[in-house]
Design a protein around this nucleic acid. Structure first.
Length: 485
RNA sequence: GGCCCGUUGGUCAAGGGGUUAAGACGGCGCCCUUUCACGGCGCAAUCAUGGGUUCAAUUCCCGUACGGGUCACCA
């Protein structure tokens, strides 16, 4: 590779929210730059005025920032090769398109849409591959001058060679060759003076000194035409890296329809941003070793294009959940308490409880923050429950001996002043020793009585601590009452 | 349909002419344990297919099937 500084670019068009696949492309693009101490550039491709969505640019900025994919040059911060918004570069494209016309590598085309549509229909009807019929390819100088003078709308088209083959190189796929005969004389400059993506990306990538072009696989089949363009200009072709799509299942791409194709959807669902980033990095890319939890910093070190896959990857939310759970578990308790508290408050309105203690119980049992409310819904008030909950085979408990246990526990807890986990633990285990019974025979009924649930975050002792002495005793009395009949 | 690309367990995937074909998630089982989790241990499960080449193909070549991409004055 050359000794030039690596420069990569993420070039989204502001047409809506940030698709998760798009974000992954941005991630890979960023990683390739940073891995090589290079620059990551943000360019906004807004040449389609009809599809432009208000506010979409802000979403792009915000998403990239939230993910820590900070750009070195871009519309908002400028840079040496700006502007970084394509619509602000109009004049540049026209100038380069005309240069190609001068060189005979492109030509003016005055065909209107109706003629094109009709021609396409005929081609399709006769089973031909639709392509421009090159009606204007060989117009005389006079004809062109005349139409231009008359103000006839025109586009500028690429003059693709009629014979031979074009080969381009992709870092992943190797050399790919196609017959020039199957290439269309694509439009470079539109009637409105805007460049097409096909033209703009070539001109801008060159002008901005982009060394590695990372983009979705859908551009693989137009890459030969871009190569031809580079050749026409006499420019050096960048290194291409085409990445495969993220799929919903074997035959469908992850799309807006699924309702979970956008980055924002996952954040809303309670996934942690570093976990999302970590997971999508693993889709279509495999690290060298066996580690799979990576911070952005670690990804920069670990990343290598040789680990990129050539086949599509199916998005697996179950795995995302698992990774999210890992991030939650390794978080310092203080931080977890902070992010968990709003979720706890969804079902807990008591103010005399310690959120930090609740969070400590919750942390190992939470894969997604949205799992939390349901787990703590017994804290405010004891739910209605069936006394069958007292029966547990392994604990050897049933309704009768649970009643005995609760009756034994009640005075012990009533007499207890040190209402902490340690204090309760000490008191109950002293009772267990005194009665010479198994732990479960006492502890299981306590847990059921104070929670009314089959599964709880933490055991009976922790729950007693959380809900407090008065409430614990009231619930145990309630248990005794329910079991007495 | 033409052209281009791809295909290793349910999913993400490593590997690559001779391997017991990694690992992770999920599943199942066991252990730990006052429930559930966490943690630990273990089990089941994969080279799409047919031909070559070769002493030897999951790996290389060709075909087939299947899947994806593309064929716009969208990007």
């Amino acid at each position: 590779m050359s000794n030039l500084k690596v420069r990569t670019r993420f070039a989204p068009s502001p047409t809506g929210y940030m698709h998760i696949g798009n974000l992954r492309t941005a991630l890979f693009t960023y990683l390739i730059a940073k891995k090589n101490n290079g620059d990551f550039i943000l360019r906004i491709e807004d040449t389609d005025q009809e599809r432009f969505v208000d506010g979409a640019t802000e979403v792009i900025y915000q998403t990239l920032r939230d993910c820590g994919l900070n750009w070195d040059e871009g519309p908002d911060i400028g840079g040496p090769v700006g502007p970084y918004v394509q619509s602000e570069r109009m004049g540049i494209f026209k100038q380069y398109a005309e240069e190609l016309v001068q060189k005979g590598e492109a030509y003016y085309c005055f065909c209107d849409k109706e003629r094109l549509d009709e021609a396409r229909k005929i081609q399709q009807a006769s089973g031909m591959t639709p392509a421009y019929d090159r009606h204007c390819r060989n117009l005389s100088k006079e004809e062109i001058a005349q139409k231009l003078a008359a103000g006839t709308p025109y586009v500028i088209r690429q003059r693709v060679p009629e014979t031979g083959t074009t080969t381009f190189h992709d870092e992943l796929y190797g050399d790919i060759s196609v017959e020039n005969a199957v290439l269309d004389d694509q439009i470079l400059l539109k009637t409105d003076g805007m460049p097409t993506y096909n033209f703009a990306n070539v001109v801008d990538d060159h002008l901005m000194g982009i060394t590695h072009v990372v983009r979705g696989n859908e551009y693989l089949s137009s890459a030969p035409k871009y190569n031809l363009l580079y050749q026409s200009f006499g420019w050096e072709v960048p290194i291409y890296i085409h990445v495969e799509h993220i799929m919903r299942d074997a035959t469908h791409k992850l799309s807006k329809r699924d309702g979970d194709a956008y980055f924002g959807d996952f954040v809303k669902k309670g996934y942690l941003i570093p976990a999302i980033l970590n997971y999508i990095a693993l889709l279509g890319w495999a690290p060298k070793g066996e580690q799979e939890i990576f911070s952005l910093e670690e990804l920069i070190n670990e990343f290598d294009i040789s680990g990129l896959a050539k086949s599509p990857a199916i998005f697996d939310e179950v795995k995302l959940r698992a990774i999210n759970g890992e991030y939650i578990r390794k978080m310092p308790l203080e931080q977890f308490t902070e992010i968990a508290t709003p979720y706890i408050k969804q079902t807990v309105s008591r103010t005399d409880v310690d959120y930090s203690v609740i969070s400590a119980c919750l942390q190992n049992r939470t894969e997604m923050l949205t799992d939390i409310p349901e787990q703590v819904d017994f804290i405010d008030a004891l739910p209605e429950y069936d006394t069958a909950l007292y029966c547990h085979k392994k604990m050897k408990t049933n309704e009768e001996n649970s009643l005995d246990s609760l009756k034994a526990v009640l005075p012990v807890l009533e007499a207890l002043d040190n209402w902490t986990a340690e204090g309760i633990h000490e008191a109950l285990f002293a009772l267990i020793a005194e009665l010479e019974v198994k732990n479960g025979l006492i502890l299981w009924p306590v847990r059921v009585a104070v929670s009314g649930k089959q599964f709880t975050p933490g055991g009976g002792i922790e729950i007693c601590e959380i809900i407090g002495k008065d409430e614990s005793i009231a619930r145990i009395k309630k248990g005794i009452e329910l079991l007495t009949k």
